[in-house]
C-alpha cells in the first residue's frame, strides 16, 4: 500500500496528493475551519510522535479491513483562519465501496484517536474545543 502521512503547518496541495494514486477508485475528504460568528482563528496542538503512530495504526487497520492500494492523511497544526483546510484524508482501492468505507473509517478514527486538540480564538477570548459524543458514536460503528 502507498501510504502518505504528514503533520504540517503549511497548506497542502490536495490535487497533487490525489494524483499519486493510480487506483480505479480514489475517495477523499477535506475538513476546513468553519466560519462561525466571532471566530478569528483555530489553533491546533498535537502530540508529536504519538500522532504519527496513531495515524499509522489507523491506516494499518484500514488495510486489514479493505483491499486498499493507497492511503493519505495530511493534518495541519498551528494557527488556521476560517475557511482554511485542516485535514485531507484519501483512500485508494480498485472499487468505490472499499474506498468510501475506508475514507470514512480513517476520518472517524482520526477524530477520536489521533492526539490533536483545537483551541478557538474568539473576539471575546480563547477556549479549548470540547470533544463531541457524536464523533465517538461514529467511531464506535466500526467496532
Amino acid at each position: 500500500m502507498d501510504i502518505l502521512i504528514r503533520i504540517q503547518t503549511e497548506p497542502f496541495d490536495a490535487a497533487a496528493v490525489l494524483e499519486r494514486f493510480a487506483a480505479g477508485a480514489v475517495v477523499s475528504f477535506i475538513g476546513r475551519v468553519r466560519a462561525e460568528p466571532g471566530l478569528q482563528a483555530l489553533r491546533l496542538e498535537h502530540y508529536p510522535g504519538m500522532t504519527e503512530a496513531e495515524i499509522e495504526r489507523a491506516v494499518a487497520e484500514a488495510g486489514q479491513r479493505w483491499p486498499l492500494t493507497g492511503a493519505a492523511i495530511l493534518h495541519r497544526v498551528g494557527e488556521l483562519k476560517p475557511g482554511e483546510p485542516i485535514v485531507l484524508v484519501a483512500a485508494a482501492a480498485e472499487h468505490r465501496h472499499e474506498a468510501f468505507a475506508a475514507c470514512e473509517f480513517l476520518i472517524d478514527h482520526l477524530k477520536t484517536k489521533a492526539p490533536f486538540w483545537k483551541e478557538e480564538r474568539l473576539v471575546s477570548g480563547s477556549h479549548w474545543v470540547d470533544a463531541k459524543a457524536s464523533d465517538d458514536d461514529a467511531a464506535a460503528r466500526w467496532g
Binding site: K111, W117, K118, W128, A131, D135
Partner: peptide, 9 residues
Amino acid sequence: AFFPPVTGG
C-alpha cells in the same frame, strides 16, 4: 502523557 479528549480532524 495526560490530556483532554482529542478534538482533531
